[in-house]
């Protein structure tokens, strides 16, 4: 009978440990930015910046000038051009953006559109000075509706704010959009 009691204690311990292992949140879900969902047209307040999603354009191709060369980029998907207005609130800083598509997949700023005029990756935001910038993403067309622009104050943003900005009304898709300097 003593053996039965000991076996029961071991089994109960194993069950408790198993339960704790199954229910403990994993590292990825614990170490996350703090999300703030912002309705279309509203200004979102993050810890170190505030921002507004001012415009959205869709294009099959984009054209811009870089290092004296005219470049045209095409895609099997669509180019999403997000226009934002933002200002820092604590110190000069840059912003990073990701498009979280309708499926939940995350699309980074397109490296094929680097160095476009007013591009977000080259923009600094100063405290008290509102500034405009453009973020270009390349993604499948069905990821646009139902997606959101995620703005963060750094490239990791762990335990920092992340603004999830709902897009304004979806525009018509244009064959080409040219970025003028």
């Amino acid at each position: 009978m003593i053996w039965l009691g000991r076996i029961a204690i071991v089994l109960a311990g194993a069950a408790l440990l198993g339960g704790m292992m199954q229910t403990a949140p994993d590292y990825n879900s614990v170490v996350q930015p703090f999300r703030h969902h912002v309705a279309a047209g509203r200004t979102g307040e993050a810890r170190s910046f505030r921002a507004r999603f001012t415009g959205l354009r869709l294009a099959d191709r984009i054209a811009f000038r870089r290092y004296g060369r005219d470049l045209v980029r095409d895609s099997d998907g669509v180019f999403l051009i997000a226009e934002i207005e933002a200002e820092a609130t604590l110190a000069s800083q840059r912003l990073d953006a990701v498009w979280q598509g309708a499926s939940g997949r995350r699309y980074a700023l397109s490296r094929r559109a680097e160095d476009i005029p007013r591009g977000l990756e080259s923009r600094w935001f100063q405290p008290g000075l509102s500034n405009r910038a453009v973020a270009v993403f390349e993604l499948p067309a069905d990821e646009v509706a139902g997606g959101a622009l995620v703005l963060t104050g750094s490239f990791t943003a762990v335990f920092d704010s992340a603004l999830h900005l709902a897009p304004p009304a979806l525009p018509e898709r244009r064959p080409i959009i040219r970025f003028e300097p």
Partner: peptide
């Protein structure tokens, strides 16, 4: 192949 540029990134669901 699209434009001869170096491959810098690959997006989900967009085959290249």
């Amino acid at each position: 192949d699209r434009d001869g540029e170096m491959l810098a990134q690959l997006h989900p669901r967009l085959a290249e």
